Computed example of a mutant assay.
Amino acid sequence: MGTITFLLVLSFLVFFHELGHFLAARYFGVKVHVFSIGFGKQLYAKEWMGTTWQFALVPLGGYVKMKGQDDSNPSLIEEGNDSYNTKKPWQRIIILFAGPFANFLLAAVLYFTIAMMGATTWAAQVGKVQENSPAFHAGILPNDEILRINDTDITSWEDIGKTIVNTDGALKFFIKRDGEIIAKTINPHIADSENMFKEKIKKRMIGISPSGKIITLDLTFSQSLIYAYEKTIFASTMIFQGVQKLISGVVPTSEVGGVISIGKVISDASESSIIALFTITALISVNLGVLNLLPIPALDGGHIMFNLYEMITRRKPSDQVFMFLTIMGWVILGSLMLLGIYNDINRIFLND
């Protein structure tokens, strides 16, 4: 069942990505010969609206084949107003960007759906209080519920961290204890901490940790839109930073996951709850959007760079340069895929 869920989710994400390219191409009048979910041998195909819609043997991706675009033959010229290579560079950039944008949009829709269904988070309830910390000296106790900090209403544990980090000076905490509202003034101190990439950082802290209590957020329609926007932006930023940290060596290559890891995460989420499955699907959708925007020639981001070059210099890169960079791009992508699979297999054996 897990494998089926994985293939359905991946096909769903690929479909939306390619649909973005397809709709943008059709908007600018470009003919699309093939819309494929998967690569390789054709398993099922149907002709509709001048396009062959197909499922192919290898379901780990997909593509739209447009008139006038062929990575394997960059010198291909197909004339006519319905050809990709006769469109202006800015139009081609929109067609290329539409795929990743569709992934970001899908993630936002999924996060919005999660918010309307009842997103869960940690409650703003104190678990442990670190000895000799600012919170300890201010008299904060376990199970205290934090209602407000200064003029900021607190609804979740995440709100506490944001407010402490983004506010200067002393903080006035309004807490609920045994049915009473108590005010406490706390002076945060700068302490050693770690970010999500396990880098050592300095951070304003008061010395408390969450109780672990889970609450369901009761969000209005407008609040759900804000929730979806913030989650999509956060996920995109996190993945961009992760790629940057990987390139700079902060994140070890052993952290790179492959198709096996993705399949396991999706399978586990599907067995947990529909909200967990939606959350993982949204995160992978953002991941696809971000990775496809990387300036690697074989990806959308690489083709966008080629078109930006053409816009600036008023000439296309030579066929030899295009082919060389495209091949290098496929080598990079292939190497990353093999690294991910290698790491996945290593984790399986280590867990055993």
Rank of each mutant, 00 (worst) to 15 (best):
I4M: 13
S11M: 07
F15D: 03
F15G: 00
L19F: 05
G20T: 00
L23P: 00
A24S: 15
G29N: 05
H33P: 00
G38Q: 11
A45P: 02
K46D: 02
E47S: 13
T51P: 09
T51N: 10
W53H: 13
F55Q: 04
L57V: 11
Q69D: 02
D70P: 00
P74Y: 04
E78T: 07
N81A: 15
T86L: 09
I94W: 01
G99R: 04
F101L: 15
A102G: 06
L105Q: 02
A107S: 14
A115P: 06
M117C: 03
A119E: 05
T121P: 04
T121N: 06
G127C: 11
E131M: 07
P134W: 02
H137S: 14
A138V: 09
G139W: 07
E145S: 10
I146P: 00
I146H: 02
L147Q: 08
D151Y: 05
I154T: 00
I160R: 06
G161Q: 15
K172V: 13
I175G: 01
P188D: 08
P188G: 08
D192S: 10
S193E: 14
N195W: 05
N195L: 08
M196K: 12
F197A: 03
E199T: 08
R204T: 06
M205L: 15
G207S: 11
G207R: 07
K213R: 08
I214E: 06
I215G: 02
L217K: 03
L219E: 03
T220S: 15
Q223R: 13
Q223K: 13
S224A: 13
A228V: 06
E230Q: 15
I233Q: 04
A235V: 10
S236M: 11
T237N: 12
F240D: 01
Q241S: 10
V243W: 01
K245S: 05
S248Q: 12
V251S: 12
S254K: 14
V259A: 14
S261W: 02
S261E: 03
V265C: 00
V265K: 07
V265T: 15
A269L: 06
S270D: 13
S272K: 15
S272D: 12
I274K: 12
I275Y: 00
A276W: 08
F278H: 05
I280Y: 12
I284R: 02
V286C: 14
V286I: 15
L291F: 07
L294R: 04
L299V: 01
D300T: 07
H303G: 00
F306K: 05
L308A: 07
E310T: 14
M311A: 15
M311T: 14
T313W: 08
S318A: 04
D319T: 14
V321S: 13
F322N: 12
M323E: 11
W330H: 08
L333Q: 04
G334W: 02
G334H: 11
G334T: 06
L339P: 05
L339M: 15
